[in-house]
């Protein structure tokens, strides 16, 4: 297991928290919590060691497209970057639901 986090400046506020996914084989869970200090922070625990740079690339792309001020807590059980992207999009969609 490996733990790391990344933080980026971010502009847009988001109203509500959201949760998606499970810590199951090839999957991950994401907890999104709004924050008001104009930063996006990704706190990751992953079962697959050695992919920190790939996570970084995924987050940087996500934040360049979605300028969200929030904390993303990620518990990963070997999800591929494609699945990570999908779950990030999902959690954002849930957070934006009325």
């Amino acid at each position: 297991m490996e733990s790391f986090s990344f933080i980026y400046p971010a502009g847009k506020e988001i109203k509500q928290r959201a949760h998606t996914g499970v810590v199951g084989s090839g999957d991950l869970e994401i907890l999104l919590e709004p924050r008001t200090d104009n930063h996006a922070e990704f706190i990751v625990r992953t079962s697959s060691d050695g992919f920190k740079e790939i996570w970084k690339a995924v987050f940087e792309r996500f934040i360049s497209l979605n300028d969200i001020s929030a904390t993303f807590i990620i518990n990963d059980f070997g999800a591929t970057p494609g699945v990570v992207n999908l779950r990030l999009a999902q959690v954002l969609e849930i957070a934006n639901q009325k």
């Binding site: 297991m1 928290r17 949760h19 810590v23 907890l31 625990r45 079962s47 518990n75 990963d76």
Partner: peptide, 23 residues
């Protein structure tokens, strides 16, 4: 629920990723 963050304290010391609701 997940945001109460009641996860297992026994998994991470064994190198296993916990879940926020402990399953």
């Amino acid at each position: 629920g997940p945001f109460d963050r009641m996860e297992s304290p026994h998994l991470a010391p064994q190198g296993i990723v916990p879940e926020s609701d402990d399953g």
